[in-house]
Design a protein around this nucleic acid. Structure first.
Lengths: 198, 198
DNA sequence: CCTTCGAACTGTACGGTGTCCAATTTAACT
DNA sequence: AGTTAAATTGGACACCGTACAGTTCGAAGG
């Protein structure tokens, strides 16, 4: 039984395996700890720093992996851009709710700055452009939608008293989301709405 | 020079003075620490536990004090309830932005559960009732508005790159808020609106 | 006035956290 | 083969929240 490994003995880690372990730990205990991740990997805590610069980088990695599960419908000429936006934000909301434990981390890191987040933002801007919204107006609309979605998921994932069943919360989210999309696609730039065809 | 105080020697603290010190500390360093608060008061760290049960209770206290600064316009018969709601949420947004350091704490505690938060919620429900929105619909609308406001403030208060000037962010917040209020006061409960008297 | 008692406060300490440093070993490259 | 960079470890540091058991004060009751 060679239970303990001496210094230098490889454990075969990788950034991916570290992030996997971190995801598991956060799913089980609701919070990450360098030591907990290391223990799950059968490794000394410091080892993680060979694959991850910081704890924040570790958390960011986990967050971005979760965001990778969001279904981002591509541009659909002929389809309603509002519908596409609605689907994308709903998928994001669902994905976030599927991992309620890391919603606090999501909030404090303000939405993750990883590549998947970037990808989703780009897709959103495409849909907004298809709806005739570009430039600053598009960026503002995007910000509003992101804030709303993450914020709502965070409040839903709260471990407090739960008088409201999940389905009702989903409806609640859906209703507010429709209000926002309606406002975005309808009344933007009320002074000059010439080429807003439809 | 009697610099150090022996055990038992009173320091003249009170819950209020502790919360004051905590507010200052959080304003300077962006985070609270029992030890930091104690040091600022010239007191041993444990002393705080005579005036505050927990660190979370301390943070909650600070949060609720900040929320006390929000101007909550009373019910105004004849006035537009939508305007009142708009003013209240805008005031909340301003107050939150005035204390960007404790926005993370606000988020992780999901909006503070203190008595001022309660008061603001009650006022909001009054205004919603004045707009003909009651019961579950009112609670849903309130949730949407709170999520949006806190979420937006949190994104604004982020210490990241700031390509957007503050005034523009305020306009951005304002626009989204109007969309939400429009949706709330216009199309609520489209299927069964029988006893929604008005 | 004296006694009593609860509350304020301190010293100390425990278990936990993130992270740095110097060693050690291994795998890969030349 | 020898050299080198990377992976891993033990150990340590500084900090965190907080529990425990004492000390001392201020006020209340006789």
């Amino acid at each position: 039984m060679q239970g303990t490994r001496g210094p230098g003995r490889r454990a075969g880690l990788s950034r991916d395996r570290v992030l996997d372990a971190a995801t598991d730990v956060i799913a089980e205990h609701g919070a990450v700890t360098m030591r907990a991740v290391a223990q799950r990997l059968g490794v000394a805590p410091n080892t993680l720093y060979s694959h991850v610069a910081d704890k924040t980088e570790l958390v960011d990695g986990v967050l971005d992996r979760v965001l990778a599960q969001v279904e981002a419908p591509g541009p659909d000429p002929g389809g309603d851009p509002g519908d596409a936006i609605h689907r994308l934000m709903t998928s994001t909301h669902d994905v976030l709710l599927r991992h309620p434990q890391l919603l606090p981390a999501f909030l404090t890191r303000q939405g993750a700055r990883g590549e998947n987040a970037h990808r989703l933002g780009a897709v959103m801007l495409e849909h907004l452009a298809a709806a005739g919204i570009t430039g600053d107006a598009a960026r503002e609309a995007l910000r509003v939608l992101i804030v709303y979605t993450i914020g709502f998921a965070a409040f839903d994932g709260a471990p407090e008293e739960r008088p409201v069943p999940g389905s009702e919360l989903r409806d609640n989210f859906d209703r507010g989301l429709r209000w926002l999309i309606a406002g975005i696609t309808a009344g933007e730039a009320p002074d000059r709405r010439s080429e807003s065809l439809r």
